[in-house]
Amino acid sequence: MNSQPTPTSQRAPRILPGRGAWSLFSLVVLLLSAAWIWLSADPEGATTGGMIPAPRPGFLAPDFSLPDTEGNLTTLSDLRGQAVLVNLWASWCTPCQAEMPAMQRVYEEYKDQGFTILAVNATQQDSQAAAAQFALEKGLTFPILFDMDGSVARSYQMTALPSSFFILPDGTINEVIIGGPMAEALLRVRIEQLLEER
């Protein structure tokens, strides 16, 4: 593009002072701004520091204990120290079905490095039998958990299926992805990032 100014047909009124006054004005603005930055600094940390449970990056992942296909309880907070992907899904949900094979592949690849997947079935909107059958047919080996009363869906403020929460080893949420299917490359990059925090 050309950088020459366009000739103006109209002339502006004499509304501004000279170069020196502009420099002084700029200096005052920048000094006041710097003072505001210093005054509004937050030594305690402007973020939550992961103390409050909420389904949002930077917050502590809301805890839950849910039964798996064999009735054994799995508790999210017991997995501290591991990178976790919590995936809310239903067997009838097409994007959920589409992303499961990629999830299985990355689970196989990263499970020995401290990564796990908790596939939380929205059982209130599905059936336990259909979900278990789906997992069997697709050969899913990661834990399939059943949210019978919808409490996890509520605490994670589930608005769409699938919803995925990437959780750091310290229990805070690193990223939330609503909708799907997630690409395998996305899963790989995010898991690598979570594992770097271990």
């Binding site: 920048l30 710097a34 505001w36 930055i37 509004s40 600094a41 937050d42 402007a46 930077g58």
Partner: peptide, 24 residues
């Protein structure tokens, strides 16, 4: 100054404010 998700560096200074100061 009123954001709850600021990225902060040494001394509690908010990174976005520093970037905004430079742009200003």
């Amino acid at each position: 100054a009123w954001r709850g998700d600021s990225e902060i560096i040494l001394g509690g200074v908010r990174v976005a404010q520093l970037a905004a100061w430079l742009v200003l």
